[in-house]
Design a protein around this nucleic acid. Structure first.
Length: 477
RNA sequence: GCCCCCAUCGUCCAGCGGCCUAGGACGCCUCCCUUUCAAGGAGGUAACACGGGUUCGAAUCCCGUUGGGGGUGCCA
């Protein structure tokens, strides 16, 4: 009988959920689900000054959106202050911690005089100070030996105890510090595997020393995930980089794409198939196979994965996913529905949908400058083409079928005939549709690129199509 | 400064001593297909940081150098 796996994701509510945090959360979730274990959540809000309770909601909402469902109720460290203080008291009575009256300036000043080396110098270590206002409690680190652990991602890691300074476990105001709360809770919650970012490697020996002094069992293993970095190879930061998961959602990325892409950072499936269902990733992912080196968060590749996921959606699901991105109401919805598969194949993110169909919804076309230059300025026989197209389309409308004849096929035939009339033909006399469609597309959409033209014109309808062609013709003079 | 970690194409991965004249994916470029744009198809570009070992044999193991990153808070 092996003890069940219990892992946790422990965000600090000091900002919106970050893609780097999501990367670690995903690793925890995958590991828990693979081992029939528990994936727990702990909100590390011990720093009352920096906490923003509303950010907790964002973190939970994003985890849910990503599909990283957790087990049980989230634990809030702000509810557990007494437990940490009790643990601290045990440290004191065991002689593993001492009170310190040094201020930050004191320490800095002494360090400056000692040659500028940072870190606490142990000034109060043997002063036997009583607890008192403003006095922090410091952990008495061992002077000899080494502290190490087995890391699933990095192998064996160890630190010389002598290199580790006496760190603060309780602030001068009695509030517990991160390490005390973090280590105590992991033991208290029965965490078996600690999976977190590489930035925690250096604090792990302190964590282990604390558990040892408290007589609590250490987790079976750690896994320090590679950091996600920007193009400058620096750790992703809230200030400089696009790191908010919520922002990616609002820019039209699918949760499935984000999760799939995140899994690919630091890891790759043996068969080389990168874009695949999460269920398959769940089967294949191994922490032992995760790379230890930092990985660049490449938005281009994320977009590629997103486009693949969008294309793979059933039409109904695509329309549902598009819904929140449609700001122009029913007309936009109708336009998208009639061109759904054409649009679906062409967007990389959901926020590209509306711009692509906007010309079917607006009353007046606005001309894109670059498109105008490409089609009108550089094109040839433009006026002739527009005139011929108007004539051919009027013929379609006036045909016995009337409006019922306004079909993609008929429209293609009409534009082809217009191309011939306008002299836009190849050596064999066949219409050059690649050139002929330019002015027509520009007239109806204001742009030189867009969804397939015949289908677009069919949706636009005869009245608007002809009006827009005449409008363009008038501008040409 | 000190401590810890890392080191294969621009980027993300594969490679875990011989199958490597190093493979895939994104990106970029070319061509094909084609009503634009996408998608799709066919190609191309491009890497084992360096120096020592170990070994019959090293991208793979060891050491060093260099480079990069992280940590060094009474933040988490």
């Amino acid at each position: 009988m092996t003890s069940p796996v219990r892992v946790r994701f422990a965000p600090s509510p000091t900002g919106y959920l970050h893609v780097g945090s999501a990367h670690s959360a995903l690793a925890n979730w995958l590991f828990a689900r693979q081992n029939d274990g528990q994936f727990l959540l702990r909100i590390e809000d011990t720093d009352a000054e920096r906490n923003r309770p509303e950010l907790i909601d964002n973190v939970l909402e994003m985890l849910r959106w990503l599909g990283l469902e957790w087990d049980g109720e989230p634990v809030h460290q702000s509810d557990r202050g007494d437990l940490y203080r009790q643990a601290a008291a045990r440290l004191v009575s065991a002689g593993a911690a001492y009170y310190c009256s040094c201020t930050g300036e004191d320490v800095q000043e002494r360090n400056r005089q000692a040659g500028g080396k940072p870190g606490y110098d142990g000034f109060c270590r043997d002063r036997n100070l009583e607890a008192g206002p403003g006095r922090a409690l410091r952990f008495r680190t061992p002077v000899e030996g080494r502290t190490g652990w087995t890391d699933l991602v990095r192998g064996e890691i160890s630190f010389a105890n002598a290199d580790i300074e006496d760190f603060v476990v309780l602030r001068g105001n009695g509030a517990p510090m991160f390490l005390l709360a973090n280590a105590f809770d992991d033991a208290d919650m029965g965490i078996t595997h600690v999976i977190r970012g590489e930035d925690h490697v250096n604090s792990t020996p302190k964590y282990l020393m604390l558990l040892d002094a408290l007589g609590l069992a250490a987790p079976k293993a750690f896994a320090h995930m590679p950091l996600l970095v920007n193009e400058g190879r620096k750790k992703l930061s809230k200030r400089r980089d696009d790191v908010s998961v919520a922002d990616y959602r609002s820019r039209g990325y699918l949760a499935e794409a984000m999760v799939n892409y995140l899994a690919l950072l630091g890891w790759g499936p043996a068969d080389g198939v990168e874009v695949r269902p999460i269920a398959e990733i769940l089967e294949l992912y191994r922490l032992e196979d995760v790379n230890a080196s930092p990985a660049f968060f490449d938005q281009k590749k994320l977009s590629f994965v997103n486009a693949e996921k969008i294309r793979a959606l059933p039409t109904e699901a695509f329309l549902a996913a598009a819904e929140p991105f449609l700001t122009r109401g029913e007309p936009a919805r109708a336009a998208l529905t009639s061109l759904a598969t054409e649009v679906q194949e062409r967007v990389r993110t959901l926020d590209e949908i509306e711009p692509m169909i906007e010309f079917l919804v607006v009353d007046e076309v606005t001309f894109d400058e670059a498109s105008w230059a490409k089609v009108i300025t550089k094109g040839r026989n433009v006026a002739e083409m527009v005139d011929a197209t108007v004539a051919e389309l009027e013929a379609v409308v006036n045909s016995p079928d009337g409006a019922a004849g306004w079909t993609p096929d008929a429209l293609q035939a009409a534009v082809s005939a217009a191309a011939v009339k306008a002299g836009l033909v190849n050596a064999e006399g066949a219409p050059q549709l690649s050139k002929a469609q330019g002015p027509v597309r520009l007239a109806v959409s204001g742009r030189s690129v867009g969804p397939p033209l015949w289908e677009s014109l069919a949706v636009l309808g005869p009245e608007r199509t002809l009006a827009r062609l005449r409008e363009l013709r008038a501008r040409l003079g």
